[in-house]
Design a protein around this nucleic acid. Structure first.
Lengths: 335, 335
DNA sequence: GTGAAAGCGCTAACAA
DNA sequence: TTGTTAGCGCTTTCAC
């Protein structure tokens, strides 16, 4: 059943049916009512691809995520999807599994689908797919690339607010040697995080000892390996900040396996504030990156670029803040 | 740029361009080559909505998930997405947040998008949205409803295999009183699980004491509350099987809070085998529901229904099995 | 206030 | 082997 069918039953033209469906006010109320009744009775479902073809817009957005396994992303998706539904928009989702090579194909598929914009949360980004989007005039919003341009916006993360709080907190607990377990090397987002850490340390008048800057992989395994390696050393920090919560959980595990515990032996601070933090033992002190706000900024940025394709993109900022739980405590008195 | 534009540059008609893109072999190789060069040079992206409109199929599927927070679903999505990508199909994702009321709108949006089928993993299912899909001839695949029909298939879970193993395992550790913490009440999937538990107990010659059949909510909170309540009683089981891993994790937490631990004081078995199980303390013995296989069956079922809309749907079966870790041990000797 | 008709970009039947 | 053309279902001028 199409609009012509509805039109025939209701004794009007398909133009009128279209007007009724789209809430145009140049239809006589009685006519509209008659059409609406037929629409209901037949449970009419319009063909979206015809609308998209005609209209040039699909009212759907593409979402590209590196990794479903990280709860940070699943929690983001939940918020993002909720916001889109409220705006009557749909979501195409694609996963890159951290492989930049997957991106090209993914972007192509989204272009074919005529998405009105793309939210890109993966950090493994090459310039080519981005140029492809720009060339096709499809707005793109990225996370923490700190670059904007025509049809290109970014949600930049202000790590300093949370990190300053975190380091002040540790300092007040008499920690002097504070280490950092970073994310995968080679990603700009990892660079941003570690730079922010070093800067926050300096600001607090502490030394960010290069020996205490370890590398992880944003997963539990990376945090566990880094902490385990650290425990084999003689000279060690008394507190650690991790690049994300999974990394911190890994560090906690390594501690546990070594018969140690937080916060008695080490203070551990994560980053993200995934729901799991609250359920851990000990509950994880962490730097919160507000997911719902992040999702809202993505949606806002996408929509405004989609509406005004010629307006330049913007850089949006999002603050982080410390969430105190019990994985941090006074520095142990050691030799 | 559309196919007509490409055609003009290459000096052919748009039909030929279409043939080249779709790999038709009735194009002279030289012509095809010339067209392909233009396609590359202009980085042509076809308009998928036109194809969908013409063709009546969108090569995309809808996926409806109740809850991103449960890692079981995120792990499923990862597999499912991978399978679809390999088949050059896309995925529309929608979340119901466990509310049946959201389903109607969700299904409607998917119909508008002309999806070729819907994978429905939510358990809160009313008949109306299902009928809507059938009426519109869109194949539907559900999980553990154990119902099939025209355009309707189901992936049924064989709980018995895993549960029998689990209960034999507990029995061999001298557990006699085995309890069960179920999922949300009122869902058929919860009924299937508890019935399978009772049956497996009987099969092992043990009594499934109704007092030891508790209710949870498939989340950590439900498992924790149920276990906490259990601990206030005098007469208690020595082992517990949970309706999913999150429930088991909750039970573990409650134990821990009460100063008890698994497997010394209680043996705990989960269900699903999410990745987290391996990282818990203690690592959780659980009944594995193989996610990748589940995703493959969904994809297979969808594709075969989409290809042959008139063939009747099928019921696919999927087995479960016990994964031994260390949250289970010998029954403690008590009074 | 309503209808007729063109056209969005693609594909497939038919013609050449 | 290639081109012409109709039409998928919708929206939107432009006439009436």
């Amino acid at each position: 059943m199409d609009m012509r069918g509805i039109a025939k039953i209701a004794g009007v033209s398909s133009a009128t049916v279209s007007r009724v469906i789209n809430g145009s006010n140049l239809v006589r109320p009685e006519t509209a009512e008659r059409v609406r009744r037929v629409l209901d009775e037949t449970r009419f479902v319009p063909n979206g691809s015809a609308t998209t073809l005609k209209y040039g817009r699909s009212s759907s957005y593409g979402l590209i995520i590196p990794d479903m396994t990280n709860p940070f992303f699943s929690e983001f998706i939940r918020s993002f999807e909720g916001i889109l539904v409220a705006r009557r928009q749909d979501m195409f989702m694609a996963l890159t599994d951290h492989r930049a090579s997957r991106m090209k194909d993914t972007i192509h598929r989204m272009l074919v689908r005529q998405v009105d914009g793309v939210a890109l949360l993966a950090s493994e980004i090459e310039t080519e797919p981005i140029e492809t989007l720009i060339r096709n005039r499809v707005p793109l919003v990225t996370m923490d690339r700190r670059l904007a341009g025509q049809g290109l916006s970014d949600i930049s993360i202000n790590y300093s607010t949370g990190l300053n709080e975190a380091i002040e907190h540790l300092k007040s607990l008499r920690h002097q040697k504070i280490g950092y377990i970073g994310g995968s090397s080679g990603l700009t987002i990892s660079d941003h995080r570690i730079q922010a850490f070093v800067k926050a340390m300096e600001r607090a008048g502490l030394k960010a000892d290069p020996k205490f800057l370890l590398v992880g992989n944003y997963r539990i395994s990376g945090g566990e390996a880094a902490m385990a390696e650290l425990l084999t050393r003689k000279d060690r920090p008394t507190a650690l900040i991790a690049a994300n919560d999974l990394t911190a959980i890994g560090a906690l595990r390594a501690l546990h396996r070594a018969g140690l515990s937080a916060p008695q032996d080490y203070s551990i601070i994560g980053f993200d504030d995934i729901e799991l933090c609250d359920v851990l033992d000990p509950p994880l002190t962490t730097i919160r990156l507000p997911r719902h706000e992040l999702a809202e900024k993505f949606a806002t940025a996408l929509e405004s670029s989609a509406k005004e394709p010629h307006a330049p993109g913007k850089i949006y900022n999002i603050k982080t803040s410390l969430v105190l739980r019990t994985s941090t405590g006074p520095a142990p008195k050691r030799k």
